[in-house]
Computed example of a mutant assay.
Amino acid sequence: MDNDRIHELLAGVGPVSIRKMFGGKSIYRDGLIFAIDLDDELMFKADETSVPDFLAAGCRQWVYTHSKTGRVTPMPYWSIPDEALDDPDEMTPWARKAIEASVRVEAVRVPKRKTKRKKA
């Protein structure tokens, strides 16, 4: 999906930034990633609070398959209902759910400890 279309669909949640990432794009609001675009498919972040809404709408979870091991890892991103892809007004509530999930996830994230580097 091109960046202009992403901005158009997500206009209801305010300004977003888009960055290239492995094989796709990551989409941020206020510095938090809440969506990805993989293979021209927009997917929103969900957590334990919002997953039931995505399931009820018939959305599917993105599953990453590791190329070397074949191991499958469920990721926290979900497809979006088809009707939302055609209408920014339908997209806005889904985008808000994704932003709220990102905020909740960030709130419980344990910060990484800084380690001192040994001087040579």
Rank of each mutant, 00 (worst) to 15 (best):
K114M: 13
A120Y: 14
D39F: 13
A56S: 10
K119G: 07
K116T: 05
G23I: 13
Y28M: 07
H66N: 09
D47Q: 10
K114P: 03
P81S: 01
M21R: 12
F22E: 11
S67C: 00
R117G: 05
W78V: 04
V105P: 00
S26D: 10
D37F: 06
D47S: 08
L32F: 07
E41G: 03
I6V: 13
A35L: 03
W94H: 09
S67G: 01
Q61E: 14
M75T: 14
N3M: 10
T92V: 05
T115N: 11
R113V: 14
L38P: 00
D40L: 04
T65S: 07
Q61S: 08
M21N: 12
L55M: 15
G14C: 12
Y77P: 03
G24M: 10
D89A: 14
V110G: 00
D86G: 15
P81M: 00
G70C: 05
R71K: 15
S17M: 13
K118Y: 09
L10Y: 11
T65H: 08
K114S: 11
I80V: 15
D82V: 03
E83C: 06
T92R: 11
A11E: 15
P93K: 04
A107E: 13
P15H: 13
T92L: 03
E48G: 09
M21E: 12
L85C: 05
E106F: 00
K68M: 04
R109D: 01
Y28C: 00
M21Q: 15
A95T: 07
M91H: 09
S17N: 12
H7I: 11
Y77I: 03
A56M: 10
R117C: 02
P52Q: 09
R109Y: 02
L9C: 04
G70L: 10
C59R: 03
S67I: 02
P74F: 09
W78Q: 03
M91N: 01
A101P: 02
E106W: 03
D37P: 08
L32K: 11
E41T: 09
D2C: 08
K119D: 13
K118I: 13
P81C: 00
S50G: 04
D87L: 08
S79E: 02
K118Q: 14
D82M: 00
A95H: 10
P88A: 10
A57P: 08
A57Q: 13
D2W: 14
L42N: 06
D87F: 11
T65C: 04
